[in-house]
């Protein structure tokens, strides 16, 4: 019994030390950042927007959105959806240098959306003032 206990104790200490010390001496692994493929990015964007559109439609039909809100949200997300569809059309065929393209494209979409916001804001300001 004593021997078993002693052995177990040793194993416990050994495992603990191993788990803590091992990463300290092991050569550092290269950490991989998340790399989305270009289609994947757009696909996610698309899925999200169209899901939202469906949701808006559904909520409206379920009487959970007022007419005005529905119109407004629907137009807003449709416009958004059109942008994504356009972006999808311009995606080049998958090639070797995807990583770089993906970043660019993401930026491009962001910029486009940013411009859209600016435009809307400007328009509203104009109307208000």
């Amino acid at each position: 019994m004593q021997a078993v206990a002693l052995l177990l104790g040793l194993i416990l200490v050994a495992v603990t030390v191993y788990l803590i010390a091992m990463p300290l001496v092991k050569p550092e692994q290269e950490t991989q950042g998340p790399e989305w493929e270009v289609e994947e990015t757009i696909e996610r964007e698309k899925e999200s927007i169209f899901t939202t559109l469906g949701e808006i439609e559904f909520d409206y039909q379920m009487n959970k959105l007022s007419d005005e809100d529905y119109e407004q949200l629907r137009n807003q997300y449709r416009r958004h959806a059109v942008e994504v569809l356009k972006a999808e059309e311009t995606v080049p065929q998958p090639g070797p240098k995807q990583g770089a393209v993906s970043v660019d494209l993401e930026k491009e979409i962001e910029a486009e959306i940013e411009a859209e916001i600016q435009r809307l804001v400007a328009k509203q300001k104009g109307k208000k003032g």
């Binding site: 603990t16 803590i20 010390a21 990463p23 300290l24």
Partner: peptide
């Protein structure tokens, strides 16, 4: 320090094992 973080993470596993035992 990535190594230190990994080691600390190893510690979490060690704690789980110890407490289970």
């Amino acid at each position: 320090n990535q190594r230190l973080l990994e080691s600390a993470k190893g510690g979490i596993l060690a704690i789980a094992i110890l407490v289970n035992v």
